[in-house]
Amino acid sequence: MKTVWRNLGRLVVIAAFSISAAHARQLEDIKANGKFVCGLTIVQPFAYYDQTTREVVGYEVDLCNMIAADLGVKSEGKVVAADVRVPELIEGRIDLLAALMSYTKERAKVIDFSNQYVEDGFYFIVREDSPIAKVDQLSDKRISAAKGSLYQSAAARKFPDANVIAFDDGPLAFLALQQGKVDATIQRSAAAVGLQLRSPEGSPKIRLLEPPLLRQGSGFGIRKGEDEFKAYLNSFLDKLEASGEAQKLWDKWLGSKSDYKLERTFKIGKAMG
């Protein structure tokens, strides 16, 4: 973990240099280039490969397309792994992260955040046939999590005697639970429901342990110093909520028109941090 934060510290220096060089004019550059590159991390239904078209679709993909349409530019999605998404942003290979970025003080030293576009709980999840009934029973158990995720470090802090095992992504961490390689996994509730829905028939069922490890909003990640771009994104989110488009987006991917049938209990545009 110390190595991770040392690397993030180096990125702060890189970010500061990049801001000076670019004169913090990203919004104008996007319009001039006619293209908007959006960084995405594969977590269904937020961003995932459609089995028929092999194109990346989902809640966050639609958000990126809506921003591009609002700016009058072409939208381009780029899939990035969770543990390298921040460097990809800082080094200028993407314009924005729509990759379930939850606010932390450490991340906020390196990048800026828009207001939230989604909110969800992060739960410890066990197999339905597990004898584990309470969160505290995981204090010395094997727990899987996505590499570089907020909840990987949060679980390690909560249970220092547990063996928190990092996998490349959430689906692999979930599979480790199904296969009995770990005693529990940590997932967003929406992501866990989706993974269960897509599991082969006969797969072990799951239980979410209350209370959640944490509940967090996710916002767009942008480079430091891009105040005009941040103001635009926050205004865009406010318009989505006020117009009813936010509810339509939720219903399509997570609510009444989806297999998830989840109720939206938050508002898009709420400040984070």
Rank of each mutant, 00 (worst) to 15 (best):
K267P: 06
Y123K: 02
D129W: 00
I67F: 08
L175I: 00
L249S: 12
G194C: 03
R85E: 00
G92A: 03
A99H: 06
K257D: 11
E88N: 15
T265I: 12
G170Q: 14
F17R: 04
K105R: 07
K35G: 00
I206L: 14
A69P: 01
D238K: 12
A191Y: 02
A155M: 08
L100Y: 12
L233G: 12
A82E: 07
D120V: 04
S218F: 13
E91P: 01
L214Y: 00
Q51L: 08
G255K: 09
M1I: 12
L177R: 11
A176E: 01
G170A: 14
R142W: 06
I30A: 08
D227C: 02
P200H: 04
P171W: 00
Q51E: 14
S20Y: 07
A47L: 03
S153M: 05
L89V: 13
V37Q: 03
R127L: 09
V80M: 10
Y103K: 13
E55L: 14
S189F: 03
E241G: 05
P200M: 01
S153Y: 13
M66R: 15
I186V: 15
S149K: 07
R107M: 14
S114V: 04
A146G: 07
Q152D: 08
S189V: 02
D227P: 01
E245D: 15
N65S: 11
G219W: 06
K74Y: 10
I143R: 08
Y103P: 09
L213D: 11
E88D: 09
E106Q: 13
L175H: 04
R107Q: 13
L233N: 10
Q137G: 15
L63C: 08
Y103I: 01
S256G: 11
R223F: 01
T265R: 15
A145E: 03
F167S: 06
S258V: 00
G219P: 11
V182I: 12
V193M: 11
R93P: 03
L237P: 14
V118D: 05
L214G: 02
A173H: 06
N234A: 04
D259Y: 02
P204Q: 13
F159V: 05
I206R: 13
L11A: 10
K141N: 10
R215W: 14
I132K: 08
Q216F: 03
V4K: 15
M101W: 06
G180R: 03
Q152A: 08
C64V: 07
F229P: 02
E201T: 13
Q187A: 00
V126Q: 02
E119F: 02
G34A: 08
P160M: 07
L240Q: 11
K248G: 09
F167A: 08
A173P: 01
R198S: 14
L97I: 06
Y49P: 00
K2T: 13
S144P: 07
L213A: 13
G255A: 12
A190V: 09
K270Q: 10
A162C: 13
G170C: 04
Q247H: 04
D62N: 12
K181A: 06
I42C: 01
F36H: 08
L213Q: 05
V43Y: 11
R25W: 00
I165H: 03
L208C: 05
D112T: 13
